[in-house]
Amino acid sequence: MGVKITQDGVECTALLEGDIDHHTAKLIREAIDDYITKKRPSTLYLDFGRVRFMDSSGIGLIMGRYKNIKLLGGELWVVGASDSTKRIIKLSGLGALGVMKEER
């Protein structure tokens, strides 16, 4: 459960793991915001490949990070989302931001 953040040049990847709910989203959010504020990556990948469960807290997590990375002049991509994660993203209308990518 949690997040592992790795950097490759100006791109960084936040590998999300386990369950994303209101409880875990707070910890994940703080870790990512702390990292991007310090390192200022030009691209942030949110990798959902190891997420087993996500509720609408995951939408808040994506929206908030999207806003923050934009403020820092970077861009955000969502990768590796499972079908059930995609269902919630679709319901939220987040797809309209054009942040979904099948692969990096």
Binding site: S57, G64, L91, S92
Partner: peptide
């Protein structure tokens, strides 16, 4: 607040 998406009931209904 900002980090809540306002989608809880929409998800339940869906």
């Amino acid at each position: 607040g900002e980090e809540r998406s306002g989608l809880g009931f929409a998800v339940m209904q869906s």
